[in-house]
Design a protein around this nucleic acid. Structure first.
Length: 276
DNA sequence: AGGAAACCTCGGCCGC
DNA sequence: TGCGGCCGAGGTTTCC
């Protein structure tokens, strides 16, 4: 499901809903979700009694800052958080429940069971998986054209798979990769190192504006995505390439094509995004 | 370095 | 119209 704009939206929502709440206990219904510590009992013990001080985001990861621990949570494809009264019946596919002292729950739901949670002592998370090798944060001022070029220089892979590589730049997934490349007028299968400075500048700009505009409207709601308050994002109505197979390009009217690139469905305009 | 498979379940689509 | 089966889905890791 969620790429940078969706995770950013979830982060903002969680800060409204659970910041300041104290965890009294945790119920782990699907141990596979908990990756660190290895024993779910240890996870429960470490986190019980801690207060959520802040929820932050790094790439597509949520970072729950507690008293002296942090919990790193990745939603993968379909993970979702929701706040409920403790008496409400559990929805299907609820895997982890954080019980608060005020009688409410933060519940993690994930149909495909791909999501992950890690706990670290505050500060130790940056030098260990899964955060230790993350790339540039695209909405950070440090994401300049030069920094972007530096990361891309000499890479022989195709530009779309490179945009999806979280060690290069974080937060871009299949939707926003297709959107940014369409906006920049660059074919997704172009060899990364073949892009000239002007093209890289356009792509850099397209990445920043696409992600920022989506954050502005609460992300994209495709399939079941909703934020922690059950609200839908609106950016899906502004998509120009993703999911528009055979529909006319909004720029030139040519039907959008869908191909498979590095195993991912890839949408592009064969007229606006030439391969050379 | 880069591609493919694997991790899961569900929903959509095709064909009988 | 109804149902079984195949395919693909927004991510990441691991294994060639």
């Amino acid at each position: 499901m969620p790429e940078l704009p969706e995770v950013e939206t979830v982060k903002r929502t969680l800060n409204v809903l659970v910041r300041g709440k104290t965890i009294s206990n945790v119920t782990v219904l699907l141990p596979r979700i908990i990756r660190l510590p290895e024993e779910p009992e240890a996870f429960v013990r470490l986190i019980s009694g801690q207060t959520i001080r802040e929820v932050e985001r790094r790439g597509k990861f949520l970072r729950f800052v507690l008293d002296d621990m942090v919990m790193i949570s990745h939603l993968r494809m379909e993970g979702r958080y929701g706040v409920f009264s403790a008496e409400e019946p559990l929805e299907l596919h609820t895997h982890v429940i954080f019980h608060f002292t005020d009688g409410t729950d933060l519940r993690y739901k994930d149909v495909r069971q791909f999501g992950t949670m890690h706990i670290f002592r505050t500060g130790e998370e940056w030098s260990l998986p899964p955060l230790h090798k993350l790339g540039l944060e695209p909405l950070d001022p440090a994401f300049t054209v030069d920094a972007f070029m530096e990361r891309i220089k000499g890479r022989t892979t195709k530009i779309k798979p490179l945009l999806l590589n979280q060690e290069v730049i974080v937060g871009i997934g299949n939707i926003y990769a297709d959107e940014a490349l369409h906006t920049a007028g660059i074919h997704p299968a172009r060899e990364a190192s073949s892009l000239d400075r002007q093209e890289l500048k356009r792509l850099h700009q397209a990445i920043v504006t696409t992600l920022a505009e989506s954050v502005e409207v609460g992300g994209s709601s495709i399939k079941s995505y909703v934020n922690g308050q059950g609200e839908m994002g609106m950016f899906q109505h502004q998509l120009k390439a993703y999911g528009r197979k055979q529909e006319p390009c909004l720029t030139c009217g040519t039907p959008i094509e869908k191909i498979v690139l590095a195993g991912r469905g890839t949408h592009y305009c064969p007229q606006c995004q030439l391969c050379t």
